[in-house]
Design a binder for these strands. Structure first.
Lengths: 330, 330
DNA sequence: TTGAAAGCGCTAACAC
DNA sequence: GTGTTAGCGCTTTCAA
């Protein structure tokens, strides 16, 4: 049986209330009693029953991290960032995937309503109306990692998708490319939507007209990118360069190139978004928009922990800036 | 305020005990009352307070996953595997890294002694004696993911490191390579140790003598692999091929090759271990030993959940088999 | 500065 | 089948 405050109280000849106070560094406890209690606790190898504590205080030092999926480097880096900050502040990280098949809402409600987590980091491609309603009723602090900072009721972190996409497409145009295609992400994904907007704006500002057949919808996967690329290259009038909405799909373009026996960047060029780890090892190195994913995680965790500790500052909507990384792929 | 069984009891005009029973599908409850109670619970949007429940039953449906670090694809896949199984069985996954700076033991004790998790998956490169002692005192089920299945007191999953390494080195020897170098992992890492043993055995069985200067210690990182590779290639008598103890270090060899302006596999060849996702996109594709990492996670979770549900079968020590993937790097 | 006691929401033994 | 009640380990009034 694990040690409880009861036993400590008995040994210290004080009440359990005093033990509780001492262990929580209550100032009202005489420092000598506190010292005694702490030494006994130490000797007995006492560990507070966190369940009991959380139960009573209705606070939990577990942070829930809900992601649309747990796959690939992107999510890994988020986890790592969150965990790092949590660890430094004595919090635990509880990771769950919303598993696509389960509605996001359900996952959220699950987390929030069962009293197990004290704060929630929600990563979602799109905050739909029903989700908004659920979130609004949340009793615990909440930080949203999203593709677009349109949220007003919650702290949020988002990637500056628009400007990132703009910068890479602008770079392509400046380099003299005229026929610039785009493989977008899923249609209902805010990251994807913002990136496409950046693409369109950059074309416009560079006086390039948009060719609808050069905009293909993908799904953020390698296979999707490959299929989209093959569609594009088989057009009567194929583009010179493809801007893929994420690196995974850009990798799909590399795969397609291999299949079609085309050479990047000679036969067609490619650019991506995210600058994931793999990208630097592609041959040629992928030109991409670097996203400090890890910092997405650390920022979210930091804001959340501040809220959990009673920070009442106005809602923050942090936008994470990106950086263009030029490789040999275009 | 969240709904409690008290309110349900009042509305259903029964005692809270009956509500509790009904909600837990106790057979003794009349089916009409059960139905009534459930419908009320549903209407009130009742969610059990898991904290209270766990507190009382002293059981938790949270599974703790402790890893030496949360970085890179390898760990990601483990998380994904564990989470998948947990999700399917209604368990939550709580991920923590032991953060290297914190002793493994401490991390474990933290998890186990605070009553927050009901089962633990521990991933560790080496189970040291002090850790063993801590584990032995564990009150909750425990599954170890380790580099070597030498453990007897706990269920464990391990990669068949020895045979994996043997197979790739044997392949190299059969292919005619005589000067086969090895970049090992950290010295105290069981995965690393077993792989080196496999390397040595394969050389021996192929009648190749071991050249000590061709065995360099690495640290499982890209930088470490690069440094080790440069050391090897600068020898008076450099090897023809390098077997790196993991893919990350093999990637380091690619980086070194670029630096030294050497061409793989012409100037020297490379093979790795793990067959991580990146490896297939290296140019040339890396020859490696495929490890079904995801299954490592699913297996561990499945065994753990069985134990948590009272399975009392003898201790299992599962060994995960590997598969040689031949690329163009050697 | 300390103690007594209530109570958090739930389960489980025991009684009816 | 159902109700009564004790109690899990801890925090937190309220009183002393």
């Amino acid at each position: 049986m694990a040690t409880t405050i009861k036993e400590i109280a008995k040994l210290a000849k004080v009440s359990i209330a005093t033990v509780s106070r001492a262990l929580n560094d209550d100032k009202k406890v005489k420092s000598s009693t506190k010292k005694l209690i702490k030494s006994i606790a130490n000797e007995l190898n006492y560990n507070p029953n966190l369940l009991a504590r959380s139960f009573v205080t209705k606070k939990s030092n577990i942070i829930g991290l809900v992601m649309p999926d747990i796959f690939g480097e992107f999510f890994m880096e988020i986890i790592r960032g969150v965990d790092e900050i949590c660890y430094n502040h004595g919090y635990y990280t509880m990771v769950t995937s919303s598993h696509s098949n389960r509605s996001m809402v359900e996952a959220i409600v699950d987390y929030m309503s069962k009293g197990i987590v004290g704060g929630l980091i929600l990563m979602t491609p799109l905050v739909e109306d029903d989700v908004k309603k659920t979130l609004a009723s949340s009793k615990i602090p909440l930080v949203v990692i999203s593709g677009k900072s349109e949220l007003q009721k919650w702290d949020s972190i988002s990637i500056d998708n628009f400007n990132g996409a703009y910068s890479v497409v602008d770079y392509l145009a400046e380099k003299g490319y005229k026929k610039i295609a785009h493989i977008s992400g899923p249609q209902k994904n805010n990251d994807s939507i913002q990136r496409e907007l950046g693409y369109r704006q950059a074309l416009k500002n560079n006086g390039i007209e948009i060719n609808k057949s050069w905009i293909v919808t993908g799904d953020f996967t390698i296979n999707g990118g490959q299929a989209a690329c093959e569609t594009l290259m088989k057009l009567e009038n194929p583009p010179e360069v493809i801007f893929a909405s994420n690196d995974m799909m850009a990798i799909g373009c590399y795969v397609a190139a291999r299949h079609l026996k085309l050479k990047i960047p000679v036969d067609f060029a490619v650019a991506g978004f995210d600058d994931i780890f793999v990208s630097q090892f592609l041959n040629p190195r992928l030109t991409s928009v670097h996203v400090p994913i890890y910092e997405l995680g650390t920022n979210a965790a930091q804001i959340l922990i501040n809220r959990m500790n009673g920070n009442n500052d106005p809602i923050q909507n942090v936008k994470i800036l990106t950086e263009l990384i030029v490789g040999g792929s275009c």
